[in-house]
Amino acid sequence: MKLITHNMLTSKCIKGVLTGFPLAINATDIKIKEVDFNSEFITRVIPKLDWEVLWCAANSIGHSDGLPKTIEPKFEEDEEFLKKAHHVLLEIEVEEGHLTCPESGRQFPISKGIPNMLLTEAEVQ
């Protein structure tokens, strides 16, 4: 799971959970996988992000080095920043671990990089 995905993901599937965001990350295995840099895409994606959540998520798994806590107004002209954002959003992969719902504490396992957001039939009754 990439941090860009984490930034969009909720546990609203659970009954009674209102926002289910952000999920806490608990990672037991993290891999760095190189991804081609596309400044146009990163520039388009940044306004869609909850930047604070991204920073905290990166920080919680020990990968916030050099990542600014806030976005500058003219971020699109700052290539170094875009590359940093690219790295954090697309190249850090949580391979094993779990996500935790901020409201209910329900855990969702991540295995082989794929989060499992399924509830049990008991939970959807």
């Binding site: 799971m1 969009m8 909720t10 599937c13 909850d50 957001m117």
Partner: peptide
């Protein structure tokens, strides 16, 4: 990414 999820329930922000 791909995620295991039931489409009948909300997943995204």
């Amino acid at each position: 990414d791909v995620l295991v999820s039931d489409f009948s329930l909300p997943l995204w922000r």
